[in-house]
Design a protein around this nucleic acid. Structure first.
Lengths: 220, 220
DNA sequence: TCATTTATTTTGAGTAGTCAAAATAAATCC
DNA sequence: GGATTTATTTTGACTACTCAAAATAAATGA
């Protein structure tokens, strides 16, 4: 069995390769794991020996098929646990990420399957992040964000791609959660500001950076 | 925060001091934790330095008030998790001990409180083991066992004090679970056998050792 | 192209936990 | 009361991480 350190390394390589290049720079991984770069070099060499990643020295890491299998399983646990904590235990969606970070390494496949059934086999977690299937299939559809989408068309939020409690609290307070309908009334690239309009509320101005973390699809 | 190794040491000291002497021999602790005695000596000295146990060299260990607090919290997590796994996820009571061994170290107090509420603040787990209260109170009532109780009186099983999956499976198959009504029809100390009688079933013969792990109270 | 900046790797050392096996102390047994 | 058994402790070594800081390689820039 992989230790929880190993599981974390693999999970973060997977998360970093979402959308982006498939060769992850060591520094990016070090930052994501909150360890110094030298530690990542050492660990990645060990993971490569174990056949879980491919290491291109001075360039970066990439998951092998085996490593990806492990990473997807951890991610599935993380996201199903988050869903359980919000849907069943009614916890705040801003708090569940930290909880799931621990539980994802302690939960067995048996428990996970039952949790999955209890929750009705959800396909996304409370933040809209896709839950990998039992077979390791991950829906990685590309959505526009509030920073890139069309103006003045009705939209629906599908995903909030920021795990920090502060951002999620901010989003919740302003009704910016998956399912919410809204439109982008204005976007000022120079000022770096986006103006959002939700039916029945006053316009909300957020930074371009924040808007870029909220994924949407055309409503209706 | 205590590591999960530390939590395990403290939990097992607590479990071993249930009923028995309060000074736990190092060998007994080593056996319970499945490590060699030398390891326990080393670890116990570290725990003593941290103020979690009192170490009487060449005699044994005992929990300090602080150590007992931690141990009770871990035990509460373990038993509430077991209850959740059986009552909500409908898992087999023989399988949940191993699962809870992992989860007890990963679950936060916040999640635990919500789980406790969801389960209706149970006072015992599916094996009848008492669940320590949030305040750290542990019901340690003494019950007779099927090896020591009166003969031919109606009894009710209150607790099965064996965590091994094999024993629990055996008990389940023979209806020997908390709540079951039965009586001891015969007890042969020489042969080491106890004959049990449950309404509507044929008599069941079990060893004295097995009988000693099943706690009962007078029925009605 | 040569110097500088930036990313990565190496080296040496530390922490938490473990085991095997030798040393020691305590208990038990003639 | 000395010899033996049994429990515990000590010693030295190993694994799986981790960091700080020096060394190296690659990229950038004048």
């Amino acid at each position: 069995m992989a230790t929880s350190t190993v599981e974390n390394y693999l999970k973060h390589v997977l998360l970093l390769s979402e959308g982006a290049e498939d060769l992850i720079p060591m520094g990016a991984l070090a930052e994501a794991l909150a360890v110094v770069p030298g530690t990542v070099t050492t660990m990645v060499k060990a993971l490569a020996d174990a056949g879980l990643v491919e290491h291109r020295p001075r360039h970066g890491v990439r998951l092998t098929a085996g490593g990806r299998r492990v990473a997807l399983s951890v991610l599935r646990k993380h996201r199903l646990v988050e869903t359980f904590l919000v849907n069943v235990l009614k916890m705040d969606w801003a708090a569940v990420h930290a909880e799931a970070e621990q539980l994802e390494h302690a939960i067995s496949d048996e428990v996970l399957d039952r949790l999955d059934a209890l929750l009705g086999h959800p396909t996304t977690d409370p933040h809209g992040d896709p839950i990998p299937s039992r077979q390791g299939k991950l829906n990685s559809q590309i959505y526009p964000t509030l920073a890139t989408c069309v103006l003045d068309k009705p939209l629906r939020i599908v995903r909030v791609t920021d795990q920090s409690a502060e951002f999620l609290q901010f989003a919740e307070q302003n009704g910016l959660q998956p399912g919410t309908g809204l439109r982008v009334a204005d976007r000022n690239l120079v000022a770096g500001l986006v103006t959002l309009k939700r039916a029945g509320t006053r316009p909300l101005v957020v930074s371009l950076a924040a808007a870029g973390r909220i994924l949407v699809e055309p409503a209706r």
